[in-house]
């Protein structure tokens, strides 16, 4: 019995309810006993009448009546006990509810503290800083890697030519073309299916795109003050 560490705990309230329920059980047992006596008395009375012993029969019936009134009294006591048990159990539930409310309130407070406006502003500020840095880096890198505008145009022209040769149509449906085209002109071709945005600008951190619009505006304002902040 040593490994009962995980066993459910018995609280003081549990013990109290246990006591009450035991009392209730005892009353019920008592009632069973009385009921048995009542049945026995009735049978005896019946027997006495058939044997022509009216006095004896009456005695049994009186005794039976007494038992029955006792039974009724025990029912009252039983009701009292059960009421008490119910009340305690309900109070315990109320206690749980209050505890739950308290917990919920604490968590809400904590969350509200975490979401102070100044904190959010600072985060957005930092984000803006980082974005600029990323842009700078990608620009620096981009100039080395990417083709310049004239070169891109040439690629375009060559692609169109080839395409026409092969398909007989100048319309291009290749996603690469679409991407390039968009990168250069900044406008997606209306005929083409929507290009996934993250593929277009891989260098830009995704959080920029996910920013809620309201905060974005706020951050733009912050952005103006930036040099001062730094």
């Amino acid at each position: 019995m040593g490994q009962q560490s995980s066993a459910p705990k018995i609280t003081q309230q549990d013990k109290a309810i246990f006591q009450l329920k035991q009392q209730r059980d005892k009353i019920k047992q008592y009632q069973t006993k009385l009921n048995y006596i009542v049945i026995k008395q009735t049978n005896l009375a019946r027997k006495a009448i058939t044997n022509g012993q009216p006095d004896r029969a009456k005695f049994y019936l009186q005794s039976k009546k007494r038992q029955e009134s006792v039974i009724n009294k025990t029912y009252e006591q039983l009701t009292n006990l059960e009421k008490l048990i119910d009340t305690i159990e309900f109070k315990l539930i109320e206690k749980d509810v209050i505890y739950g409310l308290k917990q919920g309130n604490e968590i809400l407070n904590k969350l509200n503290n975490e979401m102070k406006i100044e904190k959010i502003d600072k985060i957005l500020d930092d984000l803006e800083d980082n974005k600029i840095k990323v842009n700078e880096v990608s620009e620096a890198l981009g100039s080395g890697h990417n083709l310049n505008r004239a070169e891109e145009d040439e690629v375009d022209a060559e692609f169109n030519k080839l395409n026409e040769e092969i398909n007989g149509v100048s319309e291009s449906k290749l996603p690469e073309f679409n991407q390039l085209n968009e990168e250069i002109n900044g406008v997606p071709e209306s005929k083409l299916p929507e290009a996934p945005k993250d593929k277009i600008m891989p260098e830009i951190p995704t959080n920029e795109i996910q920013e809620p619009t309201k905060e974005e505006e706020a951050s733009k304002e912050e952005h103006k003050n930036e040099p001062i902040a730094i």
């Binding site: 009962q4 995980s6 066993a7 459910p8 705990k9 018995i10 549990d14 013990k15 246990f18 329920k21 035991q22």
Partner: peptide, 16 residues
């Protein structure tokens, strides 16, 4: 299984 706990009544018997 840790799913139950027994209660002892005043007669030192398991009652609940």
């Amino acid at each position: 299984q840790g799913k139950a706990q027994l209660l002892i009544n005043e007669d030192n018997e398991i009652g609940g």
